[in-house]
Amino acid sequence: MITQNEISREEQQEFSSSSENTGETTKQYLTFFLDGEEYGVDILGVQEIRGWEKTTILPNSPNHIKGVINLRGTIVPITDLRERFCLESKEYGPLTVVIVLNICDSSSNKKVVGIVVDAVSDVYDISSTKIKSSPEIEQQVSGEFIEGLFNVDEKMLILLDINRLLVSEAQYSEVAQ
């Protein structure tokens, strides 16, 4: 688990590294596990990382919306990323983690949302030139959210575009209805 302090320190590093401006930008990605795979999100969009807590269920909402929580006075919706990606759902345990993200929706309103993931893993520096675009995955629900792929040693990271991830929420629920 990474604490808030570490994140903000790393944010500073990331600013200094991108300011060199050598044509390629290096971004930091926070990675997490979901059904055995490692996914990454841009760390600048991460507000905080919390344990799972009971939510208030929203009536007639899609399956993957787990409800809303009170985050210091703000009502924040929680999405289960496993269910969002149509993966097999898993019982929430003490390791289950909610990553609170700051995103922009299509009309560029700032929103705060939480995603439920299995566990948080690591932080990687990733240069934009080394991100490989993902092969066409048309049939997959998750395909449209993938920003690219990145290989570290033996592993492959799936980098997600968090804005797209939740922007399409509204469309998704319309389809579901």
Partner: peptide, 8 residues
Amino acid sequence: KSLEANYQ
């Protein structure tokens, strides 16, 4: 509190 602020 509005639900639209962060959700819909």
